[in-house]
């Protein structure tokens, strides 16, 4: 489903060159729940950004669902992200000016979906995360756990095959964290392929497979 070969990421400034990722080779099968672990600054989020086509590698190849994406135009990449990928971020990244349901609808705005259909799909996604009673609320009126559930609803509303979660429980207490992980596990059981970045060993152990990074290098 997701294949990375010899991926390298270098950040260059006029005076310094930083190797963020070095020779990464990953193969995530369809329906797998994989976690990426490592200490802060080891390149976990950079790797997830590259898998999610939010950033381009300096070297190496990426295949999503069997298609190499190097030569994709910005427009094609946007379409691929829209159709195949769903993102969950540590700091939620909800748009405070939009209501919960409007936030959840965002991925559908970039498809040919009618307003009525968008509303129905967004309601369905919010029901899945148990927040159908908060549709008209605004992000500032929600707790951290609720915000992350909205973010999950937004990630799954377009029914993507792959969900990428960047420390989804990082800003939550452990009870709330477990609740979020439970939702992710349920989505995985329903067929979604999930890649989750975490530095929480206990969380990582609950996934199918663990990829460890250290200083930008894959150690397991």
């Amino acid at each position: 489903m997701i294949k990375l070969q010899n991926v390298e990421k270098v950040y260059r400034t006029s005076s310094i060159e930083t190797l963020a990722l070095n020779n990464i080779n990953i193969d995530v099968k369809k329906g797998e729940f994989v976690s990426i672990m490592g200490p802060s600054g080891c390149g976990k989020s950079t790797l997830l950004n590259i898998i999610g086509l939010l950033d381009a590698p300096s070297k190496g190849q990426i295949e999503i669902d069997g298609s190499p994406v190097e030569r994709y135009t910005d427009k094609h990449l946007a379409e691929l992200r829209n159709r195949k990928l769903g993102f969950i971020f540590q700091s939620f990244h909800l748009i405070n000016d939009l209501s919960v349901i409007d936030n959840v609808e965002i991925p559908l705005l970039y498809r040919n979906t009618s307003a009525k259909q968008r509303r129905e799909l967004a309601q369905e996604a919010l029901e899945k995360v148990g927040l159908s009673n908060r549709m008209k609320h605004f992000p500032k009126q929600l707790s951290g756990g609720q915000k992350q559930r909205v973010a999950i609803a937004r990630a799954i509303v377009g029914k993507p095959e792959i969900i990428l979660a960047d420390e989804p429980t990082g800003n939550l207490d452990s009870a709330m964290g477990n609740e979020i992980l439970g939702i992710l596990q349920k989505l995985n059981t329903d067929g979604a392929t999930i890649v989750m970045v975490t530095h929480d060993e206990a969380m990582a152990k609950k996934t199918d497979r663990l990829i460890r990074l250290f200083d930008g290098t894959q150690v397991s």
Binding site: D74, K75, A78, R81, F87, H93, L94, I106, L109, Y110
Partner: peptide, 16 residues
Amino acid sequence: ASEIGVRKAFGAPAKA
């Protein structure tokens, strides 16, 4: 910036 990032991440093309 965050809003732009989110919209792009969820498939908004630059033109949109």
